[in-house]
Every structure is written in structure tokens, then in C-alpha cells.
């Protein structure tokens, strides 16, 4: 996906007559990025086309002789199935809730890091980044065992909270399972968002803020009128990247519930169909649909919010 984003951004640059220097710089850029670009194409385009092709067949890995062309029938099965729509809904819910909460928390953390005293800054950034450095599978197990009814400590530590008692089985209901899954996602990836936002914050010219302060703007006004508009691109990049990431959620669900109690997500459904059931055709159809969803999110984010990645890189 990042290939799409990267290639679209330069296209939007105004087509002025370019100087020799600009042209040779562009050529150098292509030479430098070219090999990586070719490798990207080889490892992404080929599997995507293969999946598209496979999705038109009734193809089971353990019955290779029965492979038969069935046109778009796999797509019909997937799109008319309640399990697919249920998974799509759960995936979207996880994406929206986690991105919104992460954005708020991440912004607060970015502000703290931005304003922290220089001597503390390094320590603070490292501390905030720790969850992001942990492998998702490991963090998923940590959260799972913390909430598990037999070995978990959450039920005992927080039994004073209404609704939590030692007999609460978090992973036996849809709502509670999803809360733990989302909480774990938020804990894990808020540092990522806060880092992107911190980059945006540091790009806001201090003169503007100082000028606003001299004019008597309150802290809230400065934030709303000066800081946020100046880091809009950074916010949007953070939202886009995290939204795409969250939409492809797999590890947490796989480890905590494996889709029990209506917590199935699209990636898990695709995995179960292709890898577990070995139904390559049907699984490829789900993967293709998942791919289209991701493109759609990308498209909406880029078009609707006018994300300009070049400016987020500090080139705009």
C-alpha cells in the first residue's frame, strides 16, 4: 500500500517548467529508488495477480485435481455471507475506536514529549516507545494472560470497579473481548501515532505561536488556530497509516479469542479460509476484497482529507 501512496504524492506537484537541476535531481531520485521499486513490484504485484487469478477457481489444496473455474462465484459466496459482514463490522469498529482513542492519547503524549525539559526528553521518548517495540504476538499473550480468568490478575486487582469480579470471563463475551483487544491495540500503537504527531509538532514555527501569545491568545486558542492547522498533514498521515494498520488487525484477535463470540475480523477470516481450510480459491476472494477495502480507505483518506504526504515530509 505504501507504494501507492508514495507514487501518488509527486504526481500532485505543480507541473511548472523545471530547471536542469530539478530534473537531474528527479533522475537521481529514480535511480536511487528504482531498485527498491522493482523489488516492491515483484513481491507485491505477483502475489496480488496470483490471488486475483486463484479467486476465480474452486481450488482446495488437498484436492488439486478437482480445481475448477467458477468465475465470480467465490465473491458471491463471500458477499452474501453473514459471517463476512459481521467480520467487516467488527474490523471497522476496532479500526475506528482504536484510531480515535490513539489520536487523542497520542497527541497528549506528543505534547508532553514536545514540552518536556531537554534533559528528560530522551528518557521520556524511550519510555513512551517501549510498547511499540514489543512484538505484537508477545503483547497479545501478555494481555491475554493478564485478563485470563484462571491466571489473570486484572479480575483481582480491579474487583472494586463495578462490573469486574473474579468470575468475569473477559473472553467469553463479544463486548468484553473486543474491549481487551482494542485496549491492547491502543496500548501498543499509541507511541507510533505520538511519534508522528511529535514530528508534526516540531514543524510548527515557534514565531507563529509567540506572535499569537503576544496578541493575547489563550493556550486553547493557540492550539486550535495555530498549532493544529500547521500540523494537519502530520495528523492525517498518522490517521491514514494507523487506520490501514488497524484494519488489517490479526495477531491480537488470533491469540485472544481466535474469532470466538463474534469477534472474527477480516484478516482472520482470510487466514482461516486459505490456510486453515486450505480453500485457496475462496480464501483468495476474501483477500482480494480485503485488499479493495484497504485501497478504498486509502482513497477516501487521500481524497477527502487532502493528505499531502510531501508536506508531511517537510518538502511542501
Amino acid at each position: 500500500m505504501s507504494a501507492d501512496v508514495a507514487t501518488q504524492a509527486p504526481a500532485r506537484a505543480p507541473k511548472k517548467a523545471r530547471s536542469d537541476r530539478a530534473r537531474s535531481e528527479a533522475r537521481l531520485g529514480w535511480w536511487l529508488a528504482g531498485p527498491a521499486f522493482v523489488v516492491m513490484l515483484a513481491v507485491t504485484i505477483y502475489p496480488i495477480l496470483q490471488a486475483l487469478y486463484d479467486s476465480l477457481f474452486n481450488y482446495r489444496l488437498t484436492a488439486p485435481d478437482d480445481k475448477a473455474f467458477i468465475g465470480l462465484n467465490n465473491y458471491k459466496v463471500v458477499l452474501t455471507d453473514s459471517l463476512f459482514w459481521q467480520s467487516l463490522w467488527v474490523t471497522t469498529l476496532i479500526m475506528i475506536v482504536s484510531v480515535v482513542v490513539e489520536l487523542l492519547l497520542g497527541f497528549a503524549l506528543a505534547l508532553v514529549m514536545h514540552r518536556a525539559i531537554t534533559s528528560l526528553r530522551g528518557l521520556l521518548r524511550t519510555a513512551i516507545l517501549v510498547p511499540y517495540g514489543i512484538i505484537t504476538v508477545v503483547s497479545a499473550f501478555a494481555w491475554f494472560y493478564a485478563f485470563d480468568i484462571n491466571s489473570g490478575f486484572i479480575n483481582h486487582w480491579f474487583d472494586w470497579v463495578p462490573g469486574i469480579d473474579p468470575n468475569l470471563n473477559w473472553f467469553a463475551h463479544q463486548g468484553t473481548s473486543l474491549s481487551v483487544i482494542i485496549a491492547s491495540e491502543i496500548w501498543k500503537t499509541t507511541p507510533f501515532i505520538s511519534l508522528l504527531l511529535l514530528a508534526g509538532l516540531s514543524q510548527v514555527p515557534t514565531e507563529l505561536e509567540e506572535a499569537a501569545e503576544v496578541d493575547g491568545a489563550t493556550w486553547g486558542q493557540r492550539l486550535r488556530r495555530v498549532v493544529l492547522p500547521n500540523m494537519k498533514a502530520a495528523i492525517m498521515v498518522a490517521v491514514l497509516f494507523r487506520a490501514l494498520d488497524a484494519f488489517r488487525i490479526f495477531d491480537n484477535v488470533y491469540i485472544m479469542t481466535n474469532g470466538a463470540n463474534n469477534t472474527n475480523v477480516l484478516s482472520l477470516l482470510a487466514y482461516n479460509t486459505s490456510i486453515n481450510r486450505l480453500e485457496i480459491g475462496l480464501g483468495s476472494a476474501i483477500s482480494v476484497i480485503l485488499f479493495l477495502c484497504v485501497i478504498l480507505i486509502c482513497f477516501i483518506a487521500i481524497k477527502l482529507f487532502k493528505v499531502d504526504l510531501a508536506s508531511a515530509r517537510g518538502e511542501g
Binding site: D148, I149, N150, S151, N167, L168, N169, F171, A172, A260, N261
Partner: peptide, 15 residues
Amino acid sequence: GPGLPTADENATLTV
């Protein structure tokens, strides 16, 4: 018990 919907062989042994 309340752990039944998530009880595998090991969890059962713990109970």
C-alpha cells in the same frame, strides 16, 4: 464454572 467458555485441557486441570 465461569471459565467454561474458554476452558481448554490445561484450564480444566487448573479448575
